[in-house]
Amino acid sequence: MASVTAIERPGATWQRLRQRLEGETAMGYMLVTPAMLLILCLVVYPFMMAVWLSVSDARVGNWGQFIGFGNYVYLFGDELFLRSIRNTFLFTFSSVALKLVLGLGLALLLNKEFVGQRFVRGAILLPWVIPAALSTIGWMWMFDPLFSVFNWTLRELGLSEDGVPWLGRPGWAMFSVILVNTWRGLPFFAICFLAGLVSIPKELYEAAEIDGAGPIAKFWYITLPMLKPVMFIVILFSAVLTFSNFEIIYILTQGGPVNSTHVFATLAHTVGLISGNLGRGAAISMFMFPVLLLVVFITLGVLRKDDS
C-alpha cells in the first residue's frame, strides 16, 4: 500500500482513500447481511424460543403457559435427569480422554517417514468420514447379543463361553457407546495433532540432541509444550461435540438399559418429542448451554492470545 501511494499525488490519494472507506462500510454490511439474517432467524430466534419453551408447559402442537422455573425444579428432583447428568459427563470425559491419548500416540506414529504413509493416513481417517449413524449400525451388529463377532471370537479362543453383554448391561453399554464415540472421533484428533507435530521446527530437536536430551526428554520438553495450543482447541471442540452427541446413543441403546446411557441429547429427544413434553425437553437441552458458553470463552481467549 505505502509503496504504491508514495508515487501518487497526495490529494488524489486522499480522495481515493475516503471514497474507499465510505464504500467499505456499505459493502461490509451488504456482504454480511445474508449471514446475519440467517443467524438471527434460524439460530438466535430458535434459541430465544428454546428459552421460552423451557419456562413453559408447552407440548407438541400447543404453545403452553408460562410456568416459571417449574421444569427446572422438576428436573432437579428427577432421578432420571440426575442420572443423565452423570452419564453425560462420564461419556464426555472418558471419550475425550481416550481420543486424546490414542490420538497423540497415533499422530506420533503417522509423523514418522515410512512407505505407505499416504495410504495409512487415508485409511485412518475413514471412521471420521462415513456417516456416524451408518457406522453405528455396523457397530450395533458387532454388539449383537447372539451373533456378535467379538463374542464369537471370545468363544473360539475359549476365553468366555457366554460372551460380553455389550449393550445388555449398564456398565458394558456405557463402555460400548464410549468405544464407538472414540472410534469415530480418533481420526480428527490424530490428524489435528499430526498437523501440530509437522509445524514444530526441527531445529528445536537438533538443539536438544546436542544438549544430550533423550527421546523422552524431547517429547516432554519440546513436543508436548509445542502441541499444547492445538491440543487445547481440539479438546474443547471435541468436548462440545461429545457432550451433545445424539446419534451414537440413540441408535445403539436408546438410552438403555435402565436409562444407564441416557445423555442430555437423547433424554431431550425422548422427553420433548417422543413423550411430547416440549417444555421439559427444552429445559434439558438448555443444560448444554453453560458448557457451550464456557468453551466459547476459553477458545476465544486462546485464539486471541495466538493472534497477538
Binding site: P46, F47, A50, L300
Partner: peptide, 27 residues
C-alpha cells in the same frame, strides 16, 4: 473490509459454529 461491528460479527459466527444441534432441535 473495515466496518463498525465486524469484530462482533466474527465472534457471533464463531459462537454459532459451536452451537450443538441438540440444543436447538426442539424449537
Amino acid at each position: 473490509l473495515r466496518f463498525p461491528g465486524a469484530a462482533v460479527f466474527a465472534v457471533a459466527i464463531f459462537v454459532t459454529y459451536l452451537v450443538p444441534h441438540a440444543l436447538l432441535f426442539l424449537p
